[in-house]
């Protein structure tokens, strides 16, 4: 039964997932392009720092790609059932919770695909440059972090999508509206009107609350460097 669920999920998601896997494979390789030394230990061009700073530009792409992978896998997992108004799913002789968990498990297996692609790409990228003294490559740590981020994004969105459309709309709509109001109106209007809000940037405050530890965004804020000291 699980194999069937996994197969159907793959059929649903493969068109979206394959480009993400290619991106996950390529990203580490792209990020080290033009970096790295010629093997010399001492170069007055400060190769090591250049590598670290060169990678810095690419860091947001790793977490963004992981999040995108999670979103694609999560949204695809319920897509067909939503289209069929869940009539078919509900006519199958499995308890609803078991059906939902099987689908969730299938999606969790699929999160491995981009993570493995990134792991391979990261190893190739690390092998493609000569690291100056003091620097080390961390392809395994990066891949694990990448996998965990996909898994987290996937799990949250999957759970939301598993609820009724009404619930999902309420939760996401309220969240987006709140951020919108806080972000757009926040300081320019509210703080202009209410003395108590002066000096508090409401959106910044809200985002700070979102990354509270151990909040769901903690994984995004970790060290995403393929190469570091």
């Amino acid at each position: 039964m699980f194999r069937s669920v996994l197969y159907v999920h793959w059929k649903q998601v493969h068109l979206g997932l394959i480009p993400l896997m290619v991106a996950a494979f390529s990203l580490p390789l792209l990020s080290v392009q033009g970096l790295g030394g010629n093997g010399g230990v001492t170069s007055f061009n400060d190769t090591s720092l250049a590598i670290i700073q060169g990678l810095q530009v690419w860091l947001p792409f790793f977490s963004a790609l992981a999040a995108a992978s999670g979103v694609v896998i999560a949204l695809s997992s319920w897509n067909w059932d939503h289209q069929l108004n869940h009539v078919y799913a509900l006519s199958l002789p499995v308890p609803r919770w078991r059906y939902a968990l099987m689908k969730m498990g299938a999606g969790a297996v699929l999160t491995l695909f981009p993570a493995v692609a990134l792991w391979v790409g990261a190893h190739l990228a690390a092998a493609s440059i000569v690291l100056p003294e003091g620097l080390h490559a961390y392809p395994n740590a990066l891949a694990i972090r990448f996998l965990a981020t996909i898994l987290l994004t996937y799990a949250i969105l999957f759970a939301m999508a598993a609820g009724t459309v009404r619930t999902t709309m309420w939760v996401t709509g309220t969240g987006i509206l709140t951020l919108f109001i806080l972000g757009l109106i926040g300081n320019d209007l509210l703080a202009g009107q209410f003395e108590v809000l002066r000096g508090t940037h409401i959106l910044e405050w809200a985002l700070a609350k979102l990354d509270w530890v151990p909040g769901p965004l903690e994984i995004f804020l970790g060290n995403w460097r393929l190469i570091d000291v």
Binding site: Y7, V8, W80, L84, V87, Y88, S91, P93
Partner: peptide, 28 residues
Amino acid sequence: TEILARVGYVPERPHVYPALTVSEQIRW
């Protein structure tokens, strides 16, 4: 769950997954 295992259901609107082939749908 026990009931549905013994019930064949054809709903008002087709409820099969459109991206599958017939044999894939049957396997599922």
